[in-house]
């Protein structure tokens, strides 16, 4: 890998690193084409007037979702999980990390929205954190399961 700051954010294993770079490049390409089409439609066909913040959120969301889903479905995130014992151990770790995620999400939500003063606000903050945690767990679990299946198929001895 060339010396660049992005190398610090990529996996150390060169095969995984290259795959991830391809997924990011695919996401950027699709996003670029989509933005170009949007620009054409906006300029020549119909004015959609999408607010800038919504547009930024959509772009960031697409980049993250596409890259995460591609690497999840390819099963490259857990390259060394090949035995039932290791799989069960990783599954337990995913549960712990989901609990950590839920606590951090809750903490950040309270930090931004303030301590809930009524039941509705409590449900709002707690519900968002729980929903995000469930999504986080499902994504991690799917990735782990896919990686385990892939690694088991690769077993050579």
């Amino acid at each position: 890998m060339e010396k660049t700051w992005i190398a610090n954010l990529l996996p150390q294993d060169e095969y995984r690193e290259k795959r991830l770079l391809y997924f990011i490049a695919e996401a950027v390409f699709i996003l670029g084409v989509s933005l170009f089409l949007y620009l054409m439609v906006e300029s020549f066909i119909v004015e959609m007037d999408m607010p800038g913040d919504r547009m930024a959120l959509l772009c960031i969301g697409f980049l993250i979702t596409y890259t995460t889903l591609r690497s999840t479905l390819t099963g490259i995130e857990y390259p060394d999980v090949a035995s039932e014992k290791r799989y069960q151990k990783e599954k337990r770790l995913r549960i712990y990390s989901t609990i950590h995620f839920w606590i951090i999400f809750l903490f950040i939500s309270i930090l931004f929205k303030g301590i809930p003063s009524n039941l509705e606000e409590t449900f709002d903050i707690g519900g968002s954190a729980t929903f995000a945690a469930i999504f986080f767990f499902i994504l991690n679990y799917l990735s782990l399961k896919k990686s385990y299946k892939k690694n088991k198929d690769l077993l050579d001895d």
Binding site: D13, E14, Y15, R16, I76, P79, D80, A82, K150, N151, L154, D156
Partner: peptide
């Protein structure tokens, strides 16, 4: 490296 690297 990872085992996936060797396999690939």
């Amino acid at each position: 490296v990872s085992r996936q690297t060797i396999h690939s």
